[in-house]
Design a protein around this nucleic acid. Sequence first.
DNA 1: AAAGTGACGCATT
DNA 2: TAATGCGCCACTT
Length: 106
Amino acid sequence: MNRFKKIREIVKKIPLGKVCPYSEIARFLGYKDNRIIGWAIYNNQDPLVPCHRVIKKDGSLAEKYSLGGWREQKKRLVKEGVGFLDQNHVNLRRHFWRPGKILSSS
DNA sequence: AAAGTGACGCATT
DNA sequence: TAATGCGCCACTT
């Protein structure tokens, strides 16, 4: 049931300085609809959920970042050391992370 | 209770 | 190459 909750749990596990695409989270949890990831953190006020580390698969940021738009999101990421190739494209080569890493790291 | 809405991503046209 | 359609779930009204 609480897929949203599950999703947020995953998002919480994204390490500092890393980013994770919506689709990876969805796939990890067995969901076919990537949109639910965004919905799960839409208007999310929980500071424990680093929703700014969740991005689109091509590295671009969601335009409707709830806490101030993608520019704010970018600011947060840069602050964590995440590099950008373009104005709204994360350097996935360096900062890509996927939920599966939880398994290999523990 | 039913319908609308909402941070995506891929296949097809 | 760009635009459109589908997938499919929880929350709000």
